[in-house]
Design a binder for these strands. Sequence first.
DNA 1: CGGGTATTTGACGACTGTCAACGCCAGTGG
DNA 2: CCACTGGCGTTGACAGTCGTCAAATACCCG
Lengths: 248, 248
Amino acid sequence: MRKREEPHTRCSECPIREMALFEPVDQEQLDWTQRARSAQLVIPARRHLYREGEVSNEAYTLFDGWVILYRSLPNGKAQIMRFALPGDFLALHPDHDGPRTHSAQAVTQSTVCVFPRGELVEMLHTHPKITMRLNWIHTRDMTTCQEHLLGIGRKSAEERIAFLLMELFQRMRLRGKADGNRIAFPITQEHIADAVGLTVVHTNRIMRQLRDAQLIDCSRQSLTILNEKGLAELGNFRLDMVEMRHLI
Amino acid sequence: MRKREEPHTRCSECPIREMALFEPVDQEQLDWTQRARSAQLVIPARRHLYREGEVSNEAYTLFDGWVILYRSLPNGKAQIMRFALPGDFLALHPDHDGPRTHSAQAVTQSTVCVFPRGELVEMLHTHPKITMRLNWIHTRDMTTCQEHLLGIGRKSAEERIAFLLMELFQRMRLRGKADGNRIAFPITQEHIADAVGLTVVHTNRIMRQLRDAQLIDCSRQSLTILNEKGLAELGNFRLDMVEMRHLI
DNA sequence: CGGGTATTTGACGACTGTCAACGCCAGTGG
DNA sequence: CCACTGGCGTTGACAGTCGTCAAATACCCG
């Protein structure tokens, strides 16, 4: 899994964009956030942002692109923990200075904003609202991880994939990055397989089933949900809880 | 899964024991912690502490007993997210006032300390060290959950069960609750199956293999690790990382 | 001792993995 | 322009892990 890579580009003086992720927060916090930012990084596709075992004190906000967070076993098998989408935080562990417990690799070219960990700690002491926000994010991430666990442990291949596709679609939609029922879809079937705990071959067969059942259309780097209700039911995806779950 | 239950007993004036969980913290924080505690609860075996979907503002510290945290699917299948052991926190989400995302059920009779959520929030604002501690706990829980995910997604039945048994043994040992290479082991094979994402029948077969291979001896509510190194290797359990991972 | 729960086993089937090959497509270089 | 190449998607045949069904045995507690 995962092949060639190229070096990043660091550009400390990139224009600063809006931090949708810290919403809702007040202006004071937004200002703080922008001051704490030290640099933006542009990462080419396939490049690792960091790897399991490395020691680093940087946390990130993903501005643009898709990044996978994964862990791997000595035998080479890998499990994707999460697909990070624009607006997501990476390595947000203000008090953890041990080695990274997972790897982060860009799927597409990606732009991240770098936060020195020390400033995050500083923030916890001086900005209680951001502290609450961080806790909220941790709580949501934990819930999402547990939902993922439930899926891999107790759902069939079909259900897991249907759920994942719905999840990615809804998350993109909440970010305003859906074009009707279609989203850009830069990941490969191997990524999907690594996320749901199946092999590429079997993943391919299930994808075909979903296509044959007129639930999705997945080709040319884009995913179209042809039957949202059907796909949601198949994957046990609670459409009524989208807002609260993936609220940015 | 999960059968008969009995009501809890609330005893607000139980003697207060030491809060090992908040270590290392200074005395001021320990005092605060003890003041914030509102009551202790004794929960009979099989009783639920709370259920998925319920709304509540209580968080807990488990003093004694084993509690399972799980989620279930409409079809009745359940996935255990975590075995809570003495000293663990439950429902530690200071900023989350929505419905619970998982259920908590006592395996053995258990004693918990109850914290009103409002006091937790208060604490975040006034005790930065405890805030850091909470973040540390979240980080550790997240890492553990991801490790669990990796196991269920990418390990064989044998590896998953070996890993789980090692994990439970080491966690008990760190709590000083191991008698040499033996621990009290109140869970059933159904619990193990629900934790590793297998059926009871298949779990039983794997347990037999482990026994036949002289790796463990599991009977009469106790688990003995006969070959620690062998079991760890089989489950890809990093013996050298026990301390940092499950540090209380 | 009796009833309910937990553990075990066997037989069988299905879901998922493995191995291997082929097609498709885009980028590359002659 | 076209062959060439590597990455990805797709299929078929087959094996094996794991699930299902069913039943017997063992265990615990009143």
